Amino acid sequence: MSARSLSRCGQEPQAFLPVEFSDAVLGVHHRVQLSRATAVQLPRTLGTGAALAFGGLVFAAGRLAQWRLDQRRYDRWGREWDQVGPRWGRSADGGS
């Protein structure tokens, strides 16, 4: 017997799993049947995508923090440079 003939008899086909999707805001409710392979692979794919998105968010936050720390350091160096000024042409021992 094929999956199609089983579903005609009122039985759920063994090769497919019922999955329900609901949207409470829109009031939409769908029931679809996914193959076992798809039903197993879909959460893996979504989980991997969520993990990559979270990793990207953490990476971007780290880069933003590093950029901000660099900007603060450059500003501090600029203030120190303004206080000391360039000393080109002067030797360290005070001679000419």
Rank of each mutant, 00 (worst) to 15 (best):
G94M: 11
D82T: 02
E80D: 06
D75L: 15
W81R: 04
L69E: 14
G47K: 04
V84S: 04
R44F: 12
G78S: 13
G27P: 07
R76F: 03
G27T: 07
D70I: 06
H30C: 13
G49P: 00
E12P: 04
V32L: 13
D93V: 07
L42S: 03
G27S: 14
S35Y: 00
S5M: 09
G55Y: 01
G27M: 11
M1N: 01
T48A: 12
A50C: 02
G47V: 04
V40C: 04
H30P: 00
H30V: 10
T38H: 01
G49M: 05
R36L: 10
G85Y: 02
S2H: 08
G55Q: 01
P13Y: 03
A60F: 02
Q33G: 06
D82A: 08
P13R: 07
R79Y: 00
D82N: 01
Q83V: 06
A61D: 03
Q33E: 09
D23Y: 15
Q41R: 06
G95T: 14
A50W: 11
W77L: 11
W67A: 15
T45K: 14
F59N: 09
D93C: 10
A53Y: 01
E80Q: 06
W67G: 06
S22E: 14
T48D: 10
A92C: 08
A53T: 05
V40N: 11
A15H: 10
F16I: 06
A65L: 11
R90A: 13
L42I: 12
V32P: 00
Q71A: 12
R87Y: 02
F59S: 04
L69T: 15
F16T: 09
L42Q: 02
G85E: 09
R4F: 03
V28E: 05
R44K: 14
S96H: 14
T48Q: 09
F16E: 05
H29T: 10
R79N: 05
L26R: 11
F59W: 11
A3F: 02
Q71I: 04
H29C: 04
L6R: 11
R68L: 13
L42T: 12
S22N: 11
R63S: 08
M1Y: 02
A15M: 07
R8H: 10
F21K: 12
E12S: 12
